[in-house]
Design a protein around this nucleic acid. Structure first.
Lengths: 340, 340
DNA sequence: ATTAGCACTCGAGGTTAAAGAGTGCTAGCA
DNA sequence: TGCTAGCACTCTTTAACCTCGAGTGCTAAT
């Protein structure tokens, strides 16, 4: 394909990203570095339309990119704008002074991303497959009330209050704590199945009956830990894009968790997905830029943004790259400390 | 004021609540139990308008209630529709089988309220003034990593991971736990001031230096506990009311916490507030129905809904009354068990 | 006090006309 | 062969205009 045609396509996408309006031949003729007439551009655009990179909302309007137009633009044409030191510093500040707990880190990360990109930001926690139970505690805290505590190698903590029928003897309490400690410590969340829990219960013998609520509690906590922890923020940003369907946005907000699959499926490195390319997309006419961050040497969670197709890719992609790097660093610090 | 005029006002509000359209004289003449002509109703409506209870969007339209119209309707005219057993049962089911932790209970309560009323629902937790620290724990959980745990009489649990410079000796650990236990147990969150924390730190003597991160952690946890815990859900419901301003709704969603003041200020019993009556309202053209629930004999948190002025008060008010009763019951159970 | 009758107001919705943006095509030019 | 000027054509947007109907306020009669 003609070099000039590619330049035309690039110019159309660039312009459309800025204005959000269909782009005409005159505009492009001005923007191009080679001096050509609008008529020439028109011919090129007609070809680009035939190839499926551009489309016309109606005959007498300019062109807008199709999703394959965007795809080509992103993969081949676009020149990314590296972050200035200023911008990096701004980003660093966002993440500084944040509680190093993973949960808090992830929360701040989504907020920062959403704020900067004016999109909805999604950050998923480290996949629970990689964590292992490190501690089980039962703490009495009032009449017949006990707090269960479960801690994993990734630093997640879950707790739950259990109310019992009777007060436990200290002997029962010790037995339970030690038994759970012994049998659950080091067990990865992946291998922790229903059957395994059941076996544990049976093997408790006579204690089983009295301790049922506690066991139930532990079970619920493990279930909670297994859930991929995803934080989304900035959903409201989406409402400001007129090309996105209000109802779909609301649907997305309600069914946030559907993006989890996409986040989990993705491979490493930065990638851009379009709703047209994947029916699992929760929201039409949108794109998602995402990347996986690492924890030490292992791939951990994902982060990214969801927005309209008309996104400033050349700016946001470097942002996300930098962001991923930063989060990976911060997560890896944790990791070192926990695993060494 | 004429009895019939009041009936006219009631009919206008009733009708407007259903249709959302300005109400004409013909409609009202049909609805009234006394048989009068539209012309008569027109005269009455003109008077009601002069008194400030009704208004006309434009000359050739019907009337809609002003906020003082709603006020009069709610305080004097409206006949509330008591909940049917069916409805009560439905509500009960919503709250059944919920984790009896206050936090979970509150969360479910907002969801149920929002679902039923199609409004945004707000539930604030028991005001922290009423709780007392019952337990402080420090649990080692990896190299130089410690989990701090703070439990209050109201059943709230907060935890936090602290990373230390060095591993603590078991002696240090014991000292810290016992020291905190001794000095913080039974202390109410209200009296737990900055100065008090500082005194504690100083009194620790030589331990102070090494244990700083832990102290810092404890401090942060107490701060967290002091915050009034408010859950809001169903904000998206507001988007479906065309008489509400989109931007204001978004503003409300972002500044949810501004309602806390309203919740906290309110007195006991059910009450309805209008945005016109209080400039602190985060969202214009709206009303809020709320009530305080109890815990045992003490007033605890508040619950309510935020929606447009055009709400089905006669239905929602009994709902909220019943809901308040239910939540009070459930909370009081907790209370008995913890404090006896 | 109530009501029938009637002129009046005003918004909603539909139609028409003009303006403007942008295209596709053709014919001529380097 | 590739580019361009010119022009007719298409389609949207905007405004002006019209009509219809709902609803009112007033007046005069009951």
């Amino acid at each position: 394909m003609d070099n000039r045609k590619l330049k035309v396509l690039e110019a159309v996408v660039d312009e459309y990203i800025i204005t959000g309006e269909p782009v005409g031949s005159k505009m492009i003729a001005q923007k191009l570095d080679v001096a050509v007439s609008p008529a020439t551009v028109r011919n090129d655009m007609a070809v680009l339309e035939q190839l499926g990179y551009l489309e016309q909302p109606h005959t007498s309007a300019g062109r807008i990119p199709t999703y394959s137009g965007y795809r080509l633009y992103i993969d081949k044409l676009m020149t990314t704008q590296a972050l200035s030191d200023e911008e990096k510093r701004e980003l660093d500040e966002y993440l500084e002074g944040v509680d190093p707990t993973e949960e808090a880190l992830i929360e701040s990360a989504t907020k920062a991303l959403a704020e900067i990109t004016k999109c909805a930001a999604v950050v998923s926690d480290i996949s629970p497959k990689y964590s292992v139970i490190t501690k089980v505690e039962v703490i009495p805290t009032g009449k017949r009330m006990y707090v269960l505590l479960l801690i994993t190698s990734s630093g997640s903590i879950k707790n739950k209050v259990c109310r019992m029928e009777f007060d436990l003897t200290s002997e029962q309490l010790n037995f339970f704590t030690e038994y759970m400690q012994e049998n659950l410590k080091g067990v990865s969340l992946e291998e922790l199945s229903n059957e395994m829990m059941e076996k544990l219960v049976v093997a408790m013998g006579t204690y089983m009956v009295t301790l049922t609520p506690l066991i139930q509690g532990i079970y619920e906590l493990t279930q909670g830990l297994k859930e991929l922890d995803v934080k989304i923020s900035g959903e409201r940003n989406l409402l400001s894009y007129k090309e996105m369907n209000q109802n779909e946005i609301i649907h997305f907000i309600e069914n946030k968790n559907d993006v989890v699959r996409l986040l989990d499926e993705s491979f490493s490195g930065i990638q851009v997905m379009f709703s047209e390319e994947d029916d699992g997309f929760v929201i039409g006419n949108s794109s998602m830029i995402m990347s996986k961050y690492k924890k030490g040497k292992k791939t951990a969670g994902s982060l990214g943004v969801v927005g309209p197709m008309r996104l400033n890719y050349s700016k946001i992609i470097p942002y996300i790259e930098y962001f991923t790097e930063k989060i990976s660093e911060m997560m890896s610090e944790d990791d070192d400390e926990i695993n060494t």
